[in-house]
Design a protein around this nucleic acid. Structure first.
Lengths: 167, 167
DNA sequence: ATAAACTTTCAATAATTACTGAAAGTTTAA
DNA sequence: TTAAACTTTCAGTAATTATTGAAAGTTTAT
């Protein structure tokens, strides 16, 4: 396998992994294209490379910027915008984890808390609902906290050595 | 909020979280219905409760069984099948993590390994592709290992206390 | 062996989600 | 201030994914 094939394979694979986990294909592909690019790319270049429309490119670049993993850059002497992605995988993971936590996990934790806090009317089905949603609440909250800790910047030597322990 | 509303809210919320993470809505809803049920449910009851068709129910129950989180049960004296889900959240998380790892993450790790192993032809773009996919490979492999360890059954006292540390 | 009770399969259809392309909007240089 | 260069928006369309429902298949009781 040489460069072109490897590049193609990487972008395609990352795109399908994205879809599988609820991230749209174009968004994942744009990010992966930038991730292995040696220089900032213009909208034109991205469209050309991935064979997608101007509108699609624009919308997905916006989303990537909202997620904080792509930034617009100016290249001196050039009029058009250029885009780069966070190149450090640790940082990348941190941004993604933080955003998904904030947008998707935290609101669910809130609802699980509400649901598990309903008044116990003494019936078996209410008791079961409370017990099970409480367990799910605790698990989700823990998982969320652990993941955010694991990818957080404030990783001191303790955390780092713990990660090694897990390997 | 009393029972019916809370139940409704829980099932709906869990269903949309599912979609958001690439798990189909009906599948997530069936699982959550079983998760708070005090007894095994028949296909009839599931269809009725969630207002979905027989075919849909059957296909999604099959998938849940393939994932190892729902089991078919016989109730003595009854001809039809009854279904239950894993009630222990820890076990549930373990099954889901294992399956997603096996089906989705492991194959991607394999491809990242292949891609990052292409011959270095000395060009900047090849060097960048190798460097970046290698970094992603290592991160993905670590994340996969950590998550599987965290939810694994063999949680001994060390692991448990580490989890506490992360809280 | 028959038929009732139940489940699965799958082609057709619906619902959802993503994508396009052109018009409207914005920025920049002169 | 004009107009060229560029970007965004969004209604319409396409592609994908989920769902239905009825026919085919299976199991069980007699």
């Amino acid at each position: 396998m040489e460069y072109e094939e490897a590049k193609e394979k990487f972008i395609t694979t990352w795109g399908s992994l994205g879809s599988l986990w609820g991230i749209n294909k174009a968004m994942a592909q744009i990010q992966s294209l930038l991730f292995i690019s040696t220089k900032p790319l213009s909208m034109e270049e991205i469209m050309e490379e991935l064979q997608i429309s101007r509108g699609n490119t624009s919308m997905n670049l916006r989303q990537l910027m909202d997620w904080g993993i792509v930034t617009k850059e100016s290249v001196r002497g050039e009029r058009k915008d250029f885009f780069t992605t966070e190149k450090n995988v640790q940082e990348l993971a941190r941004h993604i984890a933080k955003e998904r936590s904030r947008r998707e996990i935290k609101p669910v934790i809130k609802i699980l808390k509400d649901v598990s806090s309903i008044k116990d009317d003494g019936t078996a089905k209410t008791k079961e609902l409370i017990k099970q949603t409480k367990a799910l609440h605790d698990l989700t909250e823990n998982a969320d906290a652990i993941i955010n800790k694991l990818v957080s910047q404030e990783q001191n030597w303790i955390t780092k050595s713990l990660i090694k322990l897990f390997k």
